[in-house]
Simulated assay, not measured.
Amino acid sequence: MNENRNSVARWISLLHRHGHEYVGRQLKKYNINKGQYIFLNALYKKDGIRQEELSDYLKIDKGTTAKAIKKLEDDEYIIRIVDKKDKRAYNVYLTDKALKIKPTVRKAMMAWTDILFLGFSEEEKETALVLLERMGKNATTTNDAAH
């Protein structure tokens, strides 16, 4: 087999980059770039979580999270409130502005998924998702063990 074809990391990287570009283009008019919509999407699922938990949930370093949160805060998509139990931590909440665009964000993300699965049978889609989930768990387990 062709060596490039066997490179799982290459294909995942390609999908990741093109996915960010695609969704970023869909959300450009809202001033949301490719690195921010994933934070909104996570908050749509877990609004009000601590900023550190958001980093852990997304498996993104704290510095990158802080930059994205700052931009979303400046654009009035989120607010940060000091945690009542730990004054050093912030909880992150969606604003009405962010909630109003939730269908648009979700639609852009689903459209990318639909593009990826063009020509796939339902069985192939399910198999792909199962395999990717297993890869994700393997990666998480390996990286967690290394720390």
Rank of each mutant, 00 (worst) to 15 (best):
S121W: 01
M109E: 03
W112F: 14
K102T: 01
T113W: 13
K125L: 07
T127Y: 07
A128H: 04
S121G: 04
N143V: 11
L129C: 12
K137S: 11
A108G: 04
P103L: 06
A108M: 00
A108P: 09
W112D: 12
E133Q: 12
A108N: 07
P103V: 09
P103Q: 06
R134L: 09
M135N: 04
K100G: 02
L99K: 12
K125T: 04
A111K: 13
K125Y: 10
E124T: 04
R134M: 12
K107D: 00
M109A: 05
M110E: 14
T127W: 05
W112T: 10
S121V: 03
G119H: 03
E123R: 10
G136D: 08
D114R: 14
F120H: 05
A108R: 06
K102S: 02
M109Q: 07
L99P: 00
A108S: 12
A98P: 00
E123C: 01
T142V: 10
N143L: 15
M110W: 14
I101F: 03
T142A: 15
F120R: 09
K137Y: 10
T104Q: 02
M135S: 05
N138M: 14
A139D: 06
M135L: 13
K107E: 02
E122I: 06
E126V: 09
G119D: 02
T127C: 06
E126F: 02
R106G: 03
K107T: 01
K97D: 01
K97A: 00
T127E: 04
M109P: 00
D114E: 15
E124M: 11
A128F: 01
R106Y: 04
T142I: 15
M135P: 06
S121P: 05
L118C: 03
E123G: 02
A139W: 09
E126Y: 01
L129F: 11
I101H: 01
L118R: 11
M135G: 03
L116Q: 15
E133H: 08
L116R: 12
K102R: 06
L132I: 09
A111W: 11
M135C: 07
A111R: 08
T113Y: 10
T104S: 00
A108F: 00
E133L: 11
K102V: 02
E124N: 06
L129H: 09
N143T: 15
A108V: 00
L132Y: 10
L129V: 11
K97W: 04
E123F: 06
L132N: 05
L132G: 03
T141Y: 13
E126I: 10
N138G: 10
T127L: 07
D114I: 10
K97F: 03
T141L: 14
L131M: 15
G119S: 03
L131C: 15
T127F: 07
T141R: 14
M109H: 04
I101S: 02
F117E: 11
D114S: 14
T104K: 02
K107H: 05
E122H: 05
F120L: 12
E122P: 01
T140C: 09
L131Q: 15
R106M: 14
V130D: 04
W112Y: 15
L129S: 13
K100H: 05
A111F: 06
F117R: 11
L131T: 15
L131F: 15
K125N: 07
